[in-house]
Computed example of a mutant assay.
Amino acid sequence: MNRIDRLTAILVQLQGKKIVKAQEIADRYNLSLRTVYRDVKALMEAGVPIGSEAGTGYYIVDGYHLPPVMFNRTEAAALLTGEKLMEKHSDRSNHQQFSNAMQKIRAVLRGSDKDFLESLDDNIAVLRSPRVSTEDQFPNRFLSDIQDGVARQRVLSMEYYSYHSDSVSRREIEPIGIFHMHSSWHLIGYCRLRNDYRDFRADRIKNLHLTDQQFDKSKRMSLQQYITREFKAEHEQPVLIKARFSYDVARYLREQKYYFGVVHEKNEEQYVEMHFMYQQLEYFARWLLMLGNGATVLEPESLKDITRKQIKLLSEHYSC
């Protein structure tokens, strides 16, 4: 990136937030802090009203706006890919908003770039595993209201279906954030009914209303704190696992072995030996059981014990 493009990009970044730290700029463009200071000074000398607060960061003085920036072809293509992902991995509210935004982006593109996007449109697809339709039960259109509640610190009132109890309950939630996992969006919030933090699947909300009640987010943990607490691994350090696979099984592992942290693979005469670094032995044992007698644990001994225990439980289950 040449310096003129970098200065423009930094200016766009400054307009995107109320306060931007110098380190954020340095990390985004792989610059030294010294270069950041020099670039910001150059923008100021060019007449851009940039203010700064020691220990906080830079900001654009209210009232200043950079004229609309034209998207280049690769940026527009990346946004088109994002639209395809949003169509399959978001709810109706967010998908519609993103689609509206893409229409505005297309409107400002040059003619040749519009043709470029049109040629790509039918040649990019995002597929999802088919699911049983639950449209009548769950509208799946509340993400925009949830985001509004998170940003403006407003309480959400909702009717939520619980698989565990097979019932619908009304909840008042102080939302702290959302995240996407296993093809579903999750709302994390402080539940006033349970007096604790809860995880709600957005596609299991039957009805939701954004109330006028405010809450103080400083009294609640952040989304990152919640994720760290709830998804902390069972072991602080991954465990070295050695296992042997028949060739018939090994040829079908493909990306699965990378998911489980394979670090070494050696072909022997009658089998393939693999080494993994993984944290959750219970989960690893369940995976190996799916592979039948085509997989054999070599070490650690604790994994062998867990596997034997799971086999015993299955045997007892089917002996009843």
Rank of each mutant, 00 (worst) to 15 (best):
G47M: 09
Q137F: 12
A101H: 13
G55V: 01
L313I: 11
T35Q: 15
S90N: 05
K266P: 00
H317K: 14
I173W: 07
P68K: 04
H65T: 15
G51D: 07
G177I: 06
V12M: 12
H186P: 00
D166L: 02
I178K: 05
E316H: 10
K232Y: 02
S99G: 03
Q147L: 06
L208Q: 08
Y197D: 05
R92M: 03
V108Y: 04
P49D: 09
C320L: 15
L117N: 14
S93Q: 11
F138K: 09
H182K: 06
F71D: 01
I25F: 01
S52T: 13
I188N: 04
L288E: 01
D5S: 08
L281E: 02
E75D: 08
L253V: 03
D115L: 10
R38C: 01
M274P: 00
Y278H: 14
H317T: 11
H182A: 12
A125V: 15
K104I: 07
E159G: 04
M181I: 12
Q224P: 09
E230V: 13
Q256Y: 07
I306E: 10
K257A: 03
S162F: 02
A107Y: 13
R3H: 10
Q310E: 15
H275D: 12
M1P: 04
V40K: 05
I178H: 10
G57K: 06
R244T: 10
H89K: 14
Q280Y: 12
V249A: 07
H180R: 09
L288N: 05
R229L: 12
